[in-house]
Computed example of a mutant assay.
Amino acid sequence: MHAPPTPFAALIALALLVGPASALASDASVKARLDARGIKHTVDDDGDYKVTYSYEKEGRTQLVFVSGGTETVGGFSIREVFSPAARLEKDGVNGAKALELLAESRTNKLGSWETDGDVLLFVIKLPDSASAAELESAMDIAAQTADDMELELSGARDDL
């Protein structure tokens, strides 16, 4: 005869059932917001929403991603918008340049510079409750900021 599950075990089982469903709901909310603004996108291998900005006048493009998942901090559900600007080694991002980027991050009103492996990213962390218009605005800011830095660091090269 099996003993009935403890309240703790029941909570764990419920969390396992509800967790994936709420993650999917968050993903669907990003898709809905992008679709509402008419933003064409794909989903990459790790579930992030990928958008290619086209700056036709300059003959350039810029990648922007909206994270497919959220993280919770202090009761906030946070979603990241990020755009790659450089390859650290290839584009000569050294200690002096890193200090300049830290100083620039201090003056940015929304977003900051981060690294992920060998990639320099401009990252904006938003409450997941951001509206479709606010999400689009954050994407615009990330794309423009990252592309400007890519131009500064790599010249005319348009790799990202």
Results as ranks from 00 to 15, higher is better:
S105W: 10
S154P: 03
E104Q: 14
A143G: 08
L120I: 07
E114N: 13
E150Y: 07
L121R: 05
G111W: 06
G95R: 05
T107N: 14
A98L: 14
V119A: 09
E100P: 05
V93W: 05
N94E: 12
E136K: 05
A142D: 05
R87L: 14
L110W: 06
K97T: 13
G92L: 09
P127D: 14
K97S: 06
L88S: 10
D116H: 05
E104L: 11
L110F: 04
D140R: 13
T145Q: 06
L120Y: 08
G117P: 04
A138I: 09
M149H: 05
S105Y: 11
N108G: 00
G117A: 08
N94R: 13
L110Y: 03
T115K: 01
Q144T: 14
N94P: 05
S137R: 12
V93E: 04
E150L: 07
I124C: 02
D128P: 01
R87N: 13
E136W: 01
R106H: 09
T115S: 12
K90Y: 14
V123D: 06
V119Q: 11
E100G: 05
A142M: 07
T115L: 04
S105C: 04
D116Q: 11
R87Y: 13
E104C: 09
T145N: 09
L153P: 00
T107I: 13
A132V: 00
F122A: 04
G92V: 12
S112L: 14
A132W: 00
E104I: 07
E89A: 15
Q144A: 15
L121Y: 12
A138S: 12
L102H: 04
E152P: 01
W113F: 15
L153S: 03
F122S: 02
S131R: 04
A138F: 03
D147W: 01
K90W: 10
L121W: 09
A142K: 08
E89I: 15
D118L: 02
D148E: 11
S137W: 08
F82Q: 10
S137C: 00
L101M: 08
R87D: 12
S129H: 02
L121I: 01
M149Y: 04
A132K: 00
E136N: 06
K97D: 02
S137F: 06
E134M: 07
S112E: 08
S112Q: 10
L135F: 00
T115Q: 06
A130W: 01
A146K: 03
W113A: 03
L121F: 09
T107E: 13
S83Y: 10
A133H: 00
D147A: 10
P127Y: 06
D140C: 01
M139T: 02
L88D: 03
S105P: 03
T107Q: 12
A138V: 08
L99W: 04
S137Q: 11
D140I: 08
P127E: 12
S131E: 02
D128I: 02
L135M: 09
K90H: 12
V119W: 12
K90A: 15
A98E: 07
I141C: 01
S137K: 11
P84M: 10
D140W: 02
W113N: 03
A146P: 05
G111Q: 03
E104H: 09
S105R: 04
R87E: 12
